[in-house]
Design a protein around this nucleic acid. Structure first.
Lengths: 159, 159
DNA sequence: CGGTACGTTCAATACAGACTGAACGAATTG
DNA sequence: CAATTCGTTCAGTCTGTATTGAACGTACCG
């Protein structure tokens, strides 16, 4: 039987997997959320039973996606990684960015449809419009959530 | 050099892949969108150069996800598959459902956190709340898009 | 009834990509 | 300056899964 923290970390790994990202990336994020304070790559390798290479690669992937930030610890040789305050907000950014990229790609293709396929072009343009509007809505909602967050209530106290 | 329709179909395959679904599923959806009218499995195998098994499996996957519907053609032995009017709306449903499932799973785990990890439990509950609200938001927005759709303007005329 | 065309299923294969472990450079330490 | 201790990178392996091709059951047809 596993502890709640282990279950949570494993669950986060599964989520990550279903979204096309590596399982370990989700596990690292879950680990950092539970810990609530910066942790080193070495700590990840021990807690998650993964290789140093995987820890480095996936931690950097999370950093690049804005879900994790690296703290250059004072007087510390090792890098510290910590989950950002609201990982969900960055998840929304990522989704919005994906929609926007899709919209761009589809629109670019749509203009090349010949005139005798005007109906098809219309359907493709319709799909592109949906993707673009989706991106915009996600951004707007993220902004709304951002504003709603109580500024004084910082969840990550320890650090 | 490829035609616009081929580029679009390939692009849809790539999108599908990045979202964890089979590439062929996206290609079929793209093909049906471009065609704008029901197509048979045999037509898919020829147009997309795929096996009959793949066509059957992936078409059924799309049907199950609500992105494609099967038309039992009159006096026709073969099944016809056609993309739904607004594939995007069903994409939103799928995303909302995923968020809801995540919220459920995370909440279930959260309650099992021991009291000496109350801070961690709070962070996990916070994540669950975000997922639940995301699901709700997506549903609301889908409903709004649904209402905005012009009823008379049916894109798929031929059939 | 054979014969054909269809959709589904499943074992076998192919393939993409996650993961590892070792090698490397850089920075620190004694 | 040797010896650690980092983080990164990369070739190689391994695992999951997409895809195939053939076999099967069914319905229609002549």
């Amino acid at each position: 039987m596993s502890s709640a923290r282990e279950l949570f970390i494993e669950q986060m790994g599964l989520f990550s997997q279903t979204e096309g990202a590596p399982r370990i990336a989700g596990q690292i994020l879950g680990y950092l959320i539970v810990e609530g304070a910066p942790r080193t790559l070495t700590q990840m390798t021990q807690a998650l039973k993964i290789s140093k290479g995987s820890a480095s690669t996936n931690a950097r992937l999370l950093e690049q996606r804005g879900l994790v930030h690296r703290v250059s610890a004072l007087g510390q040789r090792q890098d510290g990684f910590a989950a950002v305050d609201e990982p969900g907000l960055h998840t929304l950014s990522i989704m919005a960015e994906r929609f926007r990229a899709s919209a761009d790609a589809i629109e670019t293709i749509a203009v090349d449809f010949p005139d005798d396929e005007a109906a098809a072009r219309g359907r493709v343009e319709n799909l592109a419009r949906f993707h673009r509007e989706s991106a915009q809505f996600l951004d707007e909602w993220r902004a709304r959530l951002c504003g709603r967050r109580k500024p004084a209530h910082n969840i990550y106290k320890e650090e």
